[in-house]
Computed example of a mutant assay.
Amino acid sequence: MTRRVLITAGANGIGLVMAQAFADAGDRVWVTDVDAAAVAAVPSGIRATCCDASDEAAMITLFAAIADDWGGLDVLCANAGIKGPTAGIEDMDLAQWHACLAVNLDGAMIAAKHAARMMKPARSGVMIFTSSTSGLYGTPFRAPYVAAKWGVIGLMKTVAMELGPHGIRANAICPGSVNGPRIDRVIEAEAAAKGMTPDAVRQGYASGTAMKQLTDPEDVAAMALFLASDGAKMVSGQALAVDGMTYNVDP
């Protein structure tokens, strides 16, 4: 069966790899992103809209378009997120704190809210939230991001409880450090905050996993495909790490 899939922040990084994986599986895919240039460059066959996931008015317009064009939604990947500031708690800027939570947590809630309104009448659907291993363990110098990603897991579990009786499943993927431009920026900021070299921080992240390597975005996409499949029909309310088994969260 061809699924109708919405992925927020789907024109870059993990989201784009997810989008391509669902498209390759024969699904209809619609992505959003705030990066207009990336939206314009999304591969043909994937629909794309420039949209801020934390802007509810814009998301309402998006869901109305999905309802008009597709008549429903089968899979939501609430993937929008930003890294937020890197600083000790004593130096944390409140405006930056709020901005980080707005995208990472408010954006997930807004997407789930409007997806639920489409999925409940159909009595079926899958919601996949992108959290992080930071939402399982915490990460020094990343308080807003960590708080948001813990919040995403709590949101997911509550959504799973509320919507399970309506045939809707919800789970969260918790990637570890994923290869790509975002982790490069995180490593550079953390290196500056700790007085280390970026190479030393990167090696610390890798050595803190059992697999001794960073995760690839394709690994995260593979988990999303599984969670959206009938093979996961009894998997709900779970926060699933895709991280090579992180055991040292302070590289």
Rank of each mutant, 00 (worst) to 15 (best):
R3A: 00
V5S: 04
L6I: 04
T8V: 05
A9N: 14
G10R: 00
A11I: 03
G15Q: 07
V17T: 10
M18W: 01
Q20F: 04
A21P: 13
F22D: 02
G26S: 10
D27W: 01
D27V: 02
V29F: 00
V31S: 02
V31A: 02
T32R: 02
T32W: 01
A38S: 05
V39H: 10
V39W: 11
V39L: 08
A41Q: 11
V42W: 09
V42P: 08
V42H: 05
V42S: 05
I46W: 05
I46R: 02
I46Y: 06
A48V: 03
T49Y: 04
C50A: 15
C51H: 01
A53L: 12
S54E: 11
S54H: 08
S54Y: 12
E56F: 06
M59N: 13
I60Q: 13
F63C: 05
I66V: 14
A67Q: 10
A67H: 06
D69A: 14
W70E: 14
W70A: 12
G71L: 03
G71D: 07
G71V: 01
L73H: 10
D74K: 11
A80W: 00
K83Q: 15
T86K: 04
A87V: 10
A87F: 07
G88K: 09
G88H: 15
I89C: 13
A95G: 10
A95K: 14
W97C: 11
A99D: 14
A99C: 05
A99I: 05
D106I: 13
G107I: 01
A108C: 05
A108H: 14
M109I: 14
A111T: 02
A112D: 11
H114A: 02
A115W: 11
A115H: 12
A115R: 11
A116E: 13
M119E: 07
K120G: 06
P121Q: 04
T133H: 09
T133W: 06
S134C: 14
S134Q: 08
S134M: 05
S134N: 15
L136N: 10
T139Y: 07
F141D: 06
R142H: 06
P144G: 03
P144I: 01
V146M: 10
V152M: 12
I153F: 11
G154N: 14
G154H: 13
M161K: 14
E162V: 00
H166M: 06
H166Q: 12
G167Y: 08
A172M: 09
P175F: 00
V178T: 15
P181C: 07
R182Y: 11
I183K: 15
R185Q: 15
I187N: 07
A189R: 12
M196R: 15
R202W: 11
Q203W: 05
Y205I: 14
Y205S: 05
S207Q: 14
T209W: 08
A210P: 05
K212P: 07
D216F: 06
P217L: 00
D219Y: 08
D219M: 09
V220K: 04
V220F: 08
A221R: 08
M223T: 02
F226Q: 06
S229I: 02
D230P: 11
D230A: 03
G231T: 03
A232S: 12
A232K: 10
V235P: 06
G237N: 09
Q238E: 15
V242C: 03
G244T: 01
G244H: 08
N248H: 09
P251M: 00
P251H: 01
P251S: 02
P251C: 00
P251T: 00
